[in-house]
């Protein structure tokens, strides 16, 4: 059935958890593109046929005219689905730039491997756009993502962090599983990258 591939592609995206990426479904994606090409070939051959018969395409509402129309509608439906797929993934990519970090190496490997080369490129470009705005505004906007309740929070180190990072002019030893009482603003970047977790309660 025409247009089904695009629908499956969108469903594939929608079946993922909200805000989480699945690997790019390039098989289904390419099949949808291929269906678009088939539709286009059929539109053209139908129009050529009508021209051979000496009929003007826009004015003659015969079977071939409607045939071409069906292919056209299938094509634009597939286009909408393809665009929706890329658009929604791009939204998540932008969200990653805001929430996790503005450099590709900051993204955890399990997310990185789900991005296509083009999406990585988009991530980089968009990060530059954000950075350049922040530079001109003179404000860092990708910190302080949640309203501050307390200036200090308790955290536990989960990942491997280079030891001896300076915080508050004191060298601290961030050994794995050690617990610390830090300024929220200092700890936030590490929490975003999953290297620390906030201890609540």
């Amino acid at each position: 059935m025409y247009g089904r591939k695009g629908y499956q592609l969108v469903k594939d995206f929608a079946s993922g958890e909200k805000g989480q990426l699945k690997p790019f479904n390039s098989k289904l994606f390419d099949e949808t593109i291929e269906e678009c090409e088939q539709n286009h070939h059929l539109i053209q051959s139908l129009m050529r046929k009508m021209q051979r018969e000496g009929l003007e395409v826009p004015n003659n509402r015969n079977a071939d005219h409607y045939g071409a129309l069906v292919h056209h509608l299938s094509l634009i439906r597939n286009k909408r689905c393809l665009m929706a797929y890329v658009h929604n993934r791009a939204e998540i990519v932008r969200d990653l730039a805001w929430r996790v970090g503005l450099e590709l190496p900051y993204l955890p490997p399990e997310i990185l491997e789900k991005l296509t080369t083009l999406e990585k490129e988009y991530f980089k470009n968009h990060s530059v756009a954000i950075t350049s705005y922040m530079g001109k505004a003179g404000l860092e906007l990708n910190v302080d993502m949640v309203p501050p309740k307390d200036p200090y929070i308790k955290v536990r180190v989960v990942g491997d962090i280079d030891r001896g990072i300076m915080m508050n002019d004191k060298a601290t030893n961030f050994a794995p599983h050690s617990m610390h009482f830090l300024k929220r603003t200092d700890a936030e970047p590490y929490i975003a990258r999953g290297q620390m977790e906030e201890l609540t309660g």
């Binding site: 393809l82 665009m83 890329v86 296509t116 083009l118 490129e121 988009y122 470009n125």
Partner: peptide, 9 residues
């Protein structure tokens, strides 16, 4: 985003 759309789709 336009560039990304063009290259991807």
């Amino acid at each position: 985003l336009t560039k990304h759309f063009e290259e991807s789709v």
